[in-house]
């Protein structure tokens, strides 16, 4: 079975360490990820802004990249969520629509694949730190990834999970929203970062680097030292320590 990595443009360009952690972690279970080089971006920035023609041009690279994959795994609920919009994006295109529908069926967010498909709950990690978790909106609300990350963290030895107040509130990223409505987005991320600080956690963990980039950027702007990690990084780090 061909399991392919959909790295997402953000992790490719800014956070390659997240992709690396996924690759290493899955290799421990004998899953050899394949990485099609033609992939670029899922097209979400254009799609959400209303530029669907442009979104289709970008999405086409993803449809081509994963045409013969059996499973497509990404480190982002939002980018996987975008693939779930492909049937709508290509609804008037009889050639691409079946491909879009097929890709939607075989696309998974990373923890969805790990927990739901592989059945892994305990990766055997040790991570003796106070951790808080931000459930990103698209992953949790639109894909329904809610229990998977919590299940994985519950089995990490030494990890103390501190609940994040108002965890389900959006961090204020919203793609181009953060640029177009900068002050509203700024108020939202400031409140989110305040809640992270309230927990006194050493590490903020999540499943989506765009949201984490947003929150980490605000924490850093205010001189806060909370470490921000994708769950794949935390798990891989914890397995190395075990």
């Amino acid at each position: 079975m061909k399991v392919s990595l959909f790295i997402t443009c953000l992790s490719d360009a800014v956070y390659p360490r997240v992709g690396e952690a996924m690759v290493r972690l899955l290799a421990r279970y004998g899953v050899r990820l394949d990485f099609p080089q033609v992939q670029t971006c899922c097209g979400q920035p254009a799609f959400n802004s209303g530029y669907w023609k442009e979104a289709r041009e970008s999405a086409a690279t993803i449809l081509k990249a994963f045409a013969d994959s059996d499973f497509v795994i990404s480190p982002s609920g939002s980018c996987t969520g975008m693939i779930h919009h492909y049937p709508k994006l290509f609804e008037n295109d009889p050639e691409w629509l079946p491909k879009a529908q097929e890709l939607q069926r075989k696309s998974y967010e990373f923890t969805q694949f790990l927990v739901q498909v592989l059945g892994v709950k305990d990766v055997g990690a040790v991570f003796p730190h106070k951790v808080t978790y931000h459930p990103s909106c698209h992953g949790s609300r639109l894909l329904g990834v809610k229990d998977e990350p919590l299940e994985l963290m519950r089995h990490v030895r030494g990890l103390e999970l501190v609940p994040l107040p108002f965890a389900e509130d959006c961090c204020g990223f919203g793609g181009t929203f953060a640029v177009k409505m900068a002050d509203i987005s700024g108020a939202m991320v400031t409140e989110k970062a305040d809640h992270v600080r309230e927990t006194e956690a050493e590490v903020l963990v999540g499943l989506d680097m765009a949201c984490l980039m947003n929150i980490a950027g605000n924490l850093r702007y205010r001189g806060d030292k909370v470490k921000v990690l994708h769950l794949a990084e935390l798990l891989e780090e914890g397995v190395k320590r075990a």
């Binding site: 080089q37 002050d183 987005s185 950027g217």
Partner: peptide, 27 residues
């Protein structure tokens, strides 16, 4: 607007795709 509330991250020294060949061999 972004940097009025945040520090923006820089692009990685090496993208994931540039790293892939070595990583794949290791794995």
């Amino acid at each position: 607007g972004w940097n009025a509330y945040r520090v923006a991250p820089s692009l990685a020294k090496e993208t994931f795709r540039e790293r892939w060949a070595t990583l794949e061999q290791e794995i």
